[in-house]
Design a protein around this nucleic acid. Structure first.
Lengths: 261, 261
DNA sequence: CACGCATACTCGTATAGACGAGTGGGCAAG
DNA sequence: CTTGCCCACTCGTCTATACGAGTATGCGTG
């Protein structure tokens, strides 16, 4: 690495911009310019204290800004590193097309294999429970539901946590209530059972994760989540499933096709 | 407000959870439980220093966690407040349907009026410029484009910043190159000019905002942005427009309909 | 009554120091 | 050579203090 002074400038004491912001600005610019590359270690707190002639808390303050922006992450005992951008998963709007259900494996597995990643699914929980107000409304005033929870990982990294809710009168006693719903997933089962699927509605929000989401998805600070709520409707117009998904935003690009009519 | 001890508990010195995290946890829980309501002022730093018997930096550290989560925001000289959740704008997948173009006003104005908000559009800039690598690719290897930039505000609050890019051979010299593209917007003009629209593709990402986005959208800390890139295709299969939009994530819910076929 | 100023309270910025805990490399003992 | 320990370096947590700057309130002056 080049010497610090050649990468980072000095402070402007006449500026009304706070010192820790100036330092953050310089580090951010250096990262943007590629002076520090992905995964690379930034100068240590002590080095920056030396370089800028400020106190350690001021340097830490600068780092915390960059952390909040999702640009860097700190590792205890090792240093502060430029956060690598993980490979993203692209979700296309035809991902639930019937033709994709005809294979044996789930969409997640097929897709990850094709991308050369190693997919895993865990935290499987299937149980009956009371429907929340929101889920009840979306499913048309049901009291209790079958909930299927699972977590998806790519190369060991959790990227998505999803819960499917189905009305009991549809799901109880069927293979949908089993841990393994069989080839093609629950949508294939629903169609076999006569609930011909008509369309899906997806609602998308983005926000910062709750502490429990940080834990479940092992999120670095400064990484938002995409919250997607999908409702599946059958040809009778009935909502037959609601799937609530929380995704690590840095691992996903969602893609949709809209008709112009 | 009830007394502090009745709302916030004490610290657990035996816990290995850091003190500032414990304090953040207690404040978060109090907010979640509604003990502090939206827009309400939290106890001041000094009060919490007193209550917990810790130093001020520790309390500030706790606040900075909650700020990063987007739960609270600080106002210099006033206090720290529970961040109110602003009214959201719902974008439906039929928002570009032809029937919506037949009115004189833009979709944004119509929709906001209906919701009882006061809409504004500003920062209008229309100019020819060199296409970025990405835009060029999306539009099919064009060198230069017409760029239309504008910012949308609801009740004075910026919520969205958008730039449309069009190939010069389509846009140059037409009303699309004027500040006011006329009733129904540029999509209406494109269709009048023979570019019958066939479908749109939208790509959605979520991430933390850059400093310039924080400024333009006046974002509070802890608010991510939704980055949406839409490409419009005509019936000849040509990409006739790319619209790059950055939205304050707390102001939007996107909604899509997908066919099940 | 209206205005302006003093003042107390708020958060913002910065310093200096202390100790703890995780990491990794080097060195010494086996 | 291998093992295990020590040490240097890293970030994590916390205290105590100081001054600055924005806000709001009340009081006194005009």
């Amino acid at each position: 690495m080049a010497s610090l002074p050649s990468i980072l400038g000095g402070l402007d004491p006449t500026s009304d911009r706070a010192v820790f912001r100036q330092i953050a600005d310089q580090l951010r610019e250096a990262i943007d310019r590629g002076r520090f590359k992905e995964g690379e270690k930034l100068p240590s707190e002590a080095e920056l204290v030396e370089h800028y002639g400020v106190s350690r808390m001021t340097v830490r303050n600068s780092f915390s800004i960059l952390q909040g922006e999702g640009l860097v992450h700190a590792e205890h005992g090792r240093g502060v590193f430029v956060r690598p951008r993980p490979p993203v998963r692209r979700l296309a709007s035809d991902r639930f097309a019937r033709r994709h259900r005809e294979q044996g494996k789930s969409a997640f597995i097929v897709e990850a294999d094709a991308a050369g990643s190693h997919p895993t699914v865990d935290s499987l929980e299937v149980k009956e429970e009371k429907a929340s107000q929101d889920i009840s409304t979306r499913l048309g005033s049901v009291r209790r539901v079958l909930a299927r929870r699972r977590r998806y990982l790519l190369d060991g990294r959790p990227v998505e946590f999803a819960t499917s809710y189905l009305p009991l009168d549809i799901a109880r006693g069927t293979q949908i209530a089993e841990p393994n719903p069989g080839p093609g997933g629950i949508y294939a089962r629903l169609e076999e059972m006569g609930h011909q699927l008509d369309h899906f509605e997806e609602e998308i929000r983005a926000r910062m994760p709750s502490p429990s989401e940080v834990k479940t998805l092992q999120l670095a600070s400064g990484v938002p989540v995409i919250h997607l709520i999908r409702t599946a409707f059958d040809t009778a117009g009935r909502a037959v499933e609601v799937c609530d998904t929380v995704m690590a935003a840095d691992a996903y690009v969602l893609s949709y096709q809209l008709p112009a009519t």
